[in-house]
Nucleic acid binder design. Structure first.
Lengths: 189, 189
DNA sequence: GTCTATACCTGGATAGAC
DNA sequence: GTCTATCCAGGTATAGAC
């Protein structure tokens, strides 16, 4: 992986999030990286190839973040709260551009894009990780359902917080989610 | 409003939902309505004007749907369930294209489009209507918070149900929402 | 590995005949 | 009110010099 190639992926990663995949042109990316448009094709055959590279880095970055949370959080509930709180940590971006995972998935769904399933794997990373945390809390039977509940709750807050540009609401919902989590029964077998 | 103009709006409404606003071209709409591209400009000055007309019809249609639910549902809880159940009623569309309201809002947010706020008014219609239903249940203080909770919950289920193409999950969450609603305290003063 | 030049297409939008 | 013809900007992608 050359430095230029990496710069392209980083710029595309950011622009695909803020502007959307289709709305982002080679000229946009070239403007950030300071290369000519023709130079892209030495590194990537098509725009779709750039998208695949972006999704790959997002998968890797997410995986690393989950590992970090695993090390930082003393208890499973602490770790799950690390996830919940990204709504506020990344609020300045979310209020303008929504959730990076959800918005890419819905865009690719409408485009009926070949990488649609690949993009949803970021959700799967969170889902499996959350499921593990709930399993550690003793929720062996409903761990996956709880994981999906946390995922969808935060996703909904991201979408509506974005639509209404309402940080207070987002803050309130984060508190509600944490309270809900704290009140969950824990079996320490 | 001429018949042609109405046909354009109807076709655009459908295509903006299924393909996204920006991805839909005049040629796409013209193909459905069977008119020439040049003919658009007799009815609309710009593509943005078509979007505004589409949003207007969606606002009107939503308003009408809420009136219908008001008449059909015997109790506020029944009416709120009418809202919750559209996730399953429209599932065949949602699994492929997501929630029409949420996906348009996030797309326009990324485009930083002038009609962004106008699009989010569809959410507001649901919000105010749900708030009224919860008020009727005696939840005077937290009616709006409850309305937002129902909105975000369903929105999250739409996004994740779409990403994973999982109807069983959507069905399960609809049941959960209905159970949650049934267990809500009601004060009949 | 990076550039310029360019091909080729599709997008929204306009002009003017009918 | 609808059409054809056309403009022009911008998109992806290619060719080939350096």
């Amino acid at each position: 992986m050359t430095a230029t190639r990496q710069q392209i992926v980083e710029a595309a990663d950011d622009l695909f999030y803020r502007q959307g995949f289709e709305h982002t042109s080679f000229a946009d990316i070239a403007g950030v990286v300071n290369i000519s448009r023709g130079n892209f094709y030495h590194h990537f055959k098509t725009k779709d190839d750039i998208l695949d590279a972006v999704i790959k880095t997002r998968l890797g970055r997410t995986q690393q973040m989950l590992v970090d949370w695993e090390e930082e959080g003393a208890t499973p509930k602490d770790r799950i709260k690390s996830y919940i709180k990204i709504l506020l940590t990344n609020w300045t971006m979310i209020k303008d551009y929504g959730c990076p995972v959800g918005t890419l998935c819905t865009e690719l769904a409408k485009l009926n894009h070949a990488s649609r399933d690949e993009a949803s794997k970021v959700f799967t990373l969170f889902r499996v990780w959350l499921r593990n945390q709930f399993s550690l809390l003793g929720h062996t039977g409903d761990a996956d359902a709880l994981a999906m509940q946390v995922l969808s709750w935060s996703q909904g807050v991201a979408t509506l917080g974005n639509a209404f540009n309402d940080r207070k609401y987002a803050k309130q919902e984060v508190d509600n989610m944490c309270d809900w989590l704290d009140s969950l029964p824990v079996s320490t077998t």
